[in-house]
């Protein structure tokens, strides 16, 4: 089993580059809300994600007071993608990105500018502005956005080379709310790495995203708040692998009528 997954890993390396780098596996795992750092570690071992994301805003409200936890994250041995979760303004997001670069020694940043407290919907206006500032400063920005095509255009125009549209509101577990919109985004930007970020609840949601042609998924709450996070992490890994294989295998077309896979000789089917 392990060997087979390893083989696919090698295979994936050639597929998609995120700012010039391949992910070892097209799964990004958030590190918030786990019952303990130890359970987080078990989940990471089970999911073997390509990156882990880490939030800094609240933990570092004053100076680097989150260092003890961040050290545990760095010890996981998985590339770290810091995020600006909890930031509501451009200024907050930019400052948090600066701190993230200093703490984790990476110019990657998952950019969140939250516009609405209840749904945690991105403020796409602030997002584009923050993405422009950070890209000009040399950051490699992974923007958390909606499936809106025009916003996507603007983000790419200001230097983003990856887009991370939501599946559903953060932590809602509702899966892909707007499959049409996500399909359109995929079709419009065939060469841009796309990651479904937020809203996935169960493994089949992740498989669906990969089947739609998305290059990776990001999950956090679905694993962290599961009764058994490590088991759910493994389930998501398998689902991502399934969705990816299914996509590569060139699925059949949907049809409106039944198409029996065995001959129906002897029955009057043309009547």
């Amino acid at each position: 089993m392990t060997d087979r997954i390893q083989d696919n890993r090698e295979d994936n390396r050639m597929d998609v580059l995120f700012y010039g780098q391949a992910l070892s596996f097209p799964l990004m795992l958030g590190t918030a809300q786990y019952p303990s750092p130890e359970i987080l570690r078990e989940a990471v071992l089970a999911a073997r994600p390509g990156v882990v994301t880490v939030s800094l805003r609240r933990e570092a409200a004053r100076e680097k007071t989150g260092q003890a936890f961040w050290s545990l994250i760095q010890e996981l041995g998985v590339p770290v993608l810091p995020n600006t979760a909890g930031c509501h303004t451009v200024k907050e997001a930019v400052t948090t990105a600066h701190m993230a670069r200093e703490v984790f020694g990476t110019d990657w940043v998952k950019l969140e500018v939250i516009g609405e407290q209840d749904t945690l919907q991105p403020d796409v206006f602030g997002l584009v502005e923050a993405a422009r500032i950070l890209s000009e400063e040399g950051f490699k920005v992974f923007p958390y956005t909606t499936e809106d095509l025009v916003v996507a255009e603007r983000l790419l125009a200001c230097g983003c080379e990856v887009l991370m549209p939501w599946g559903a509101p953060i932590g809602s577990g509702r899966g892909l709310n707007n499959v049409f919109g996500l399909r359109a985004l995929r079709a419009h930007f065939p060469g841009v790495p796309l990651v479904v970020d937020a809203g996935l609840g169960v493994p089949s949601h992740a498989a669906q995203a990969l089947e739609l042609g998305y290059d990776a998924v990001l999950i956090n709450t679905a694993v962290a708040r599961a009764g058994d996070p490590a088991q759910m992490a493994r389930a998501f890994r398998l689902a991502v692998e399934a969705g990816q294989l299914g996509r590569k295998a060139d699925p059949m077309e949907e049809r409106d009528m039944a198409a029996p896979s065995t001959p129906v000789a002897g029955k009057a089917f043309l009547g």
Binding site: R58, E59, A61, R62, E63, T65, G66, A68, F69
Partner: peptide, 13 residues
């Protein structure tokens, strides 16, 4: 519950 060792005053949030 915040993964931080900040001992400063309570935040507005």
């Amino acid at each position: 519950m915040v993964e931080s060792e900040d001992t400063g005053g309570m935040t507005v949030r």
